[in-house]
Design a protein around this nucleic acid. Structure first.
Lengths: 339, 339
DNA sequence: CTGAAAGCGCTTACAG
DNA sequence: CTGAAAGCGCTTACAG
């Protein structure tokens, strides 16, 4: 191992400046309003700078009972579709002087508890962002009453009063309206797993608006994967009255769904219109570029951090819905209903 | 804010068990070999369990000068193409009882230093995984001599003696051989930025093997994005002698490149064969599924963690090349050279 | 076999 | 304006 320079401690700075460590601490942390003789302050600042002093986060954390760290519980590291959310959260946390530690909640039995123990119970974090909530997970309640605040982002935990979400219902409605405007009457939704609250809200909006026009969409839930999207699209296309417009829940499903459509020789958009939820760079580069709903994912992540830090600082919990409206990015996969 | 249960401390367990905290500490941490009367041990274990005691990681970290945390410096949170590497690192770290904190090294001037200060100099981590090395970054040397060990993964920092890499040269050779076997003589490489060591090694392998057959590939470097891939492919296709086989550096470029090919009405693979580096799920779902090189990314991440922890425990630095060979996943985008 | 003490690197009332 | 002391929650030699 290379010789590793021991980082400077308060003690080193104090000695170099010829003062007591408590004085150093005061000028380093003081917001300028501490009463220190200017020349003393100067000597300390110079010494600290020369020694490249940075307060040890662990020691400070122990003393202040604050870690400067937030936890982030993601549903999967395998499939980074939601990386804009993570990026939004990371960037804001970094700006606000917090670092982010990762944990994975795969949905398997003890994954979330394990993460909870390691991050919360061992006192590693000041707050927890949960991106992996599932409506069927009973353990989430205990998170809310634990020793650190938490916030559910994107996927809400109803009743928790700690949800930061987007206008998913509006996204569904927007897509339904787009289809109806194009004259479609046979709508379908290739949905995600309905245990995900986002998925449920999107579906609701889509179905509700379609019904106002007398069209009742077929809904097929499927796992958020290429394979599941592929199978579910085949299922949809075998329906007695084949839908002419399908709203697909995510990009992975959409890739599989597009393959299924191609296999059947069905033309897009002449015979079938497709919309993908969450606009992904890939959408624009497919052979038939996909019309997609763009959600304010980055903003969701950054707002979730703000709301969490609010609570870390003592505020009451609250639900927040990001105001920014979903945006429909119209590309070539949607067109007028076939006659 | 909800009433938050204060987590149990050593003190609480000691009181509940009627012993001194030092005794509790010993039985909790002892690997069984500590001499404690069985009934005392039992009382302590029961109390700890009932109080759900977990040692505070911060306090323990301060005492042991060890944090149980590793840092991960990624090139970008925007584009998670390398998520299998991150996942491999995360999973192995978690298994070995370390948590991972994220930092982003966007390549902008002080991004890496900033991350270094916050993670290393503030004493938050025991070791640093660097996935963002660039051959043109002079600051990397100082990382090597800092207070904590580091490892460069995927993108090497030549001369550091701390690189964990894959057989990128072999990947390039494998693709060249595939093209040559199919009878192609006019080869090209849509490369990534040559400041990335991985990119340089891949190119070398590709060019070197092609030359043995008397074919000297055209090499066009481009940023790893859809747009750059699109532009660079157009450039390649305007060459006086148009290549019949192109090796593309990553999936983002490939999506743009495929679009460019389509715009020119060139048929794949009849008129042009394409191979993409790094097999991505998307490759299999394009209209013309892409032949791709599958690298052992997950293994790279997990091995990098092992090598780093080796050094955290005091071992000498060393370079490691993952033995696992790249694998060519042949799909429909490659075929015999046109006559 | 168990307890009392020191100390990890900080911060912050409290003196002076 | 500055110093000395206590203490955050642990671990570990050192006594007994």
């Amino acid at each position: 191992m290379a010789d590793r320079a021991r980082p400077a401690r308060l003690d080193d700075v104090a000695r170099a400046a010829g003062v007591h460590i408590s004085t150093v601490s005061r000028v380093i942390n003081g917001r300028g309003e501490v009463s220190v003789r200017p020349e003393t302050r100067q000597r300390i600042l110079t010494a600290a700078h020369e020694l490249q002093y940075r307060p040890n986060a662990i020691a400070r954390g122990l003393r202040l009972a604050t870690t400067g760290t937030l936890g982030l519980l993601v549903p999967s590291l395998r499939n980074p579709v939601n990386s804009p959310i993570v990026r939004g959260a990371f960037n804001r946390a970094w700006e606000r002087n917090f670092v982010l530690v990762l944990a994975e909640d795969t949905g398997e039995s003890e994954a979330a508890e394990d993460a909870y123990e390691r991050l919360v119970e061992e006192g590693r974090i000041d707050g927890l962002l949960i991106q992996s909530a599932r409506l069927d997970n009973p353990h989430l309640d205990s998170f809310s009453s634990g020793p650190v605040p938490c916030v559910f982002m994107d996927r809400a935990h109803p009743g928790s009063g700690r949800n930061v979400t987007m206008r998913d219902g509006d996204a569904g409605r927007m897509v339904a309206k787009h289809f109806l405007d194009l004259g479609h009457r046979f709508l379908a939704h290739l949905a995600g797993p309905l245990e995900l609250d986002t998925v449920a809200r999107r579906r609701e909006g889509f179905v509700e608006l379609a019904r106002t026009a007398g069209a009742t969409p077929i809904v097929v839930p499927a796992v958020l994967s290429e394979e599941a999207g592929h199978a579910a699209m085949h299922e949809l296309l075998e329906q007695p009255t084949r839908p002419t417009a399908v709203f697909v829940a995510n990009i992975n499903q959409a890739l599989g769904a597009v393959a299924a459509v191609r296999e059947r020789g069905i033309r897009v958009p002449e015979e079938l219109s497709l919309v993908c939820h969450d606009d992904d760079p890939v959408c624009g580069f497919l052979d038939t570029p996909l019309t997609a709903v763009r959600m304010p994912l980055h903003e969701l992540g950054s707002t979730a951090v703000d709301v969490l830090l609010e609570q870390v600082e003592g505020a009451e919990r609250r639900n927040v819905v990001i105001e920014t409206e979903p945006e429909l990015v119209v590309r070539r996969s949607t067109g007028p209903a076939p006659q």
